[in-house]
Amino acid sequence: MIDVKNLVKVFTAKKGVLGHDAIEAVSHMSFSIPGGGALSLIGESGSGKTTVGRILAGLEVPTSGDIWIQRVNVMTLPPAERRTFLRQVQLIQQDPYQALNPARTIEQSLEDPLKVIARERGKNGAWIQSRVHEVLLRVGMDPGSVLNKYPHMLSGGQRQRIVIARALTVEPKVLVADEAVSMIDVSLRLGVLKLLKDLRQEFGISLFFITHDVASARYVGEDGQLFVIYKGQVVESGPTDEIISQPHHPYTQALLSAVPVLKGLEDPGPDRFIPLRGNDQEQVPDTACIYEPRCPFAQAKCQKERPVLQGAGHAYACHFPVVRRVVATMK
């Protein structure tokens, strides 16, 4: 299980000789995922969602905040210990074409982490071999046909399965899946999503699922939590199904409206709206709602006062929350 309290990440960029420009990529984020549970983080590119995942995996250091994994505060561990400890958090990256070393065979890539563990536990080569076969079979790959292959000989879906198998070699407690299926053919996505969903139950893995696609989030974590993030801030959070059926924040509604409607099978929600304005990088003053420049329902108050995330269970940061029926319904 994983517990995150008040996570903040500020990136500073040099701005000439005069000083630094600070960008708050993640702003005071708190959440917890029980063992076997799921939390989906939804937002556009540039919303800071990838940064959260990289912090959990130990690839970035947060500016402030606490991360508890299996009841241990990661931030208080000495660096060397933290490295080993964070092996329990594994990151599945977006691009399966970059995630495997092109110069090494699948077998070599899977053996490497197992050799480290074998040394720690005093296991032999046969144990490594059996673990390699075990994880490959678990992700639905035939060891005999892939072990000697190089990554470029496999399809995107197959590579992502190998990446998941590699993560499983270290017996993780938390999987961070960062847009894990967005570069795979749609026809093969569901297979990988199902694998992630099954791993939750089978190994009690907590799944932190980062995506821009509400439908994938629902598939892997219908029983979990959904956090909608915009420019580093959580604008709506709560149980996944409740947010999909009762979205309160206009940004959540925009994300739900953006899901394609299957003509012939579904009717678009009566309140569906497609925002044509793109995600621009302009800074919003601290006194205004961060979504105000793009919000089609913004009012005068939205420019003067920034709403805070409030509500127990299902929370949202909006001055004028209105439930809109934007989700398509089956015919």
């Binding site: 749609v186 093969l188 996505r189 569901l190 994938s216 629902r218 598939y219 299957l262 099978l265 089956m330």
Partner: peptide, 9 residues
Amino acid sequence: LIRAIPRIS
């Protein structure tokens, strides 16, 4: 192909 599309309802 149609069955493999995850849906929101």
